[in-house]
Design a binder for these strands. Sequence first.
DNA 1: CGCTGAATTGACGGACATCAAGATGTGTGG
DNA 2: CCACACATCTTGATGTCCGTCAATTCAGCG
Lengths: 220, 220
Amino acid sequence: MYAQVVQTDVVGRIDPLADSSAHGPLARWITSVPIKFGANREIYGEKEPADYVYELVHGAVRTVKVLPDGRRQIGGFYFAGDIFGLEDGHEHSFSAEAITVSSVRVIRRSTLTRMARDDREIAERLMTITAQEIARLHSHALMLIKTAPERLGSFLLEMAERIALDGVIELPMSRQDIADYLGITIETVSRTFTILESQSTIALFNSRAVILRNPSALAA
Amino acid sequence: MYAQVVQTDVVGRIDPLADSSAHGPLARWITSVPIKFGANREIYGEKEPADYVYELVHGAVRTVKVLPDGRRQIGGFYFAGDIFGLEDGHEHSFSAEAITVSSVRVIRRSTLTRMARDDREIAERLMTITAQEIARLHSHALMLIKTAPERLGSFLLEMAERIALDGVIELPMSRQDIADYLGITIETVSRTFTILESQSTIALFNSRAVILRNPSALAA
DNA sequence: CGCTGAATTGACGGACATCAAGATGTGTGG
DNA sequence: CCACACATCTTGATGTCCGTCAATTCAGCG
């Protein structure tokens, strides 16, 4: 169930220090106190009613679907300022998990749509966010028909755009997460990182910190 | 540009015989006269402003993206009663093409969203259609991480649900279309069809007409 | 009929998965 | 601060699925 929305255990407790002045896309309307989730905690589960929409205040989140045979698909990654949980209609088809410690603002979907009826700006923001989500899914699908180096290239370019600081990408997710997002194995991810580094297309501080030395080479 | 919306050439002409009593999901609001497109005609192009939303009255439509190197990705298939063109925000990231002769009702997106402000039912239909589109994209992405037989299986099950009549699936699209939708080659599609037939999982009247003899085997 | 594009079938190679071993990093407790 | 344990990541050897290239069959149409 969606007990985690009100959970108060050690990791998922309400954070009294949360900065509620942070200004995400829906911050003016999602005014609830952020809820904190520890690394690898589930925020919502597959098949739960999709009654809430979430704004990630800080941290990193992945959406996950596990197939009967154990294969795992990552639907997407979300970072500070992103909205997630909008993915579906009636019930979630993916679960959402915190990758690192994350804090999340929650709003009832029904509240949001009711507000959207009265406020044109909210309605438009909702449309925009949905359109972005659809665009993201399109580019994800597009990636899944490419070769392994191309997939990793697209991934790194996407991450560069979304979370790079001073040209350094600090990847919060594991190789396994990347592999399941790209639809390849962890070994292929690792090997491809090595190849890209040997070509000086990228540089690796450590396995989680990347610099793009030649971004245009990644596009091809 | 989006000239085809008003195009009047031999194939894309306005069809005086169109049955405007057909009742698709938005039929009560998309009241324009259907426009007819010949097989393989473009309905809208990639990068065009996404100003219109389309309801397919009859026929079959594919959305297509062609990569710089010539690889082709099919985003989705649409059949009678389906809404398409909603895929994106500001401009289309795919083009839409009629697979067979098709007739299409068109409405300005801005008209639709204006109507949605006044009419709660329209707003909800729009939400539902968008949610379905997102769900479709999710299951498409999920398919792209599977093996070739699994991809074709998912595809056939999807088609069975959407266009089967008396247990017979009449596929309007070519093997190349299927291949580009599934992210595999036309040869692999063909071989997999043959294998499924030899297992009596499916039966083929001809290359375009399929019967599912053992649907549960397709799921695996 | 013969022409043309679509679909099937075959032979072969390559990209990526699988299986397995090592290396590196990280947290915990002494 | 070190030592051990455990997880993560990398690297290597081998296998296999599917892509590529090519030939043949089939279906529709003038």
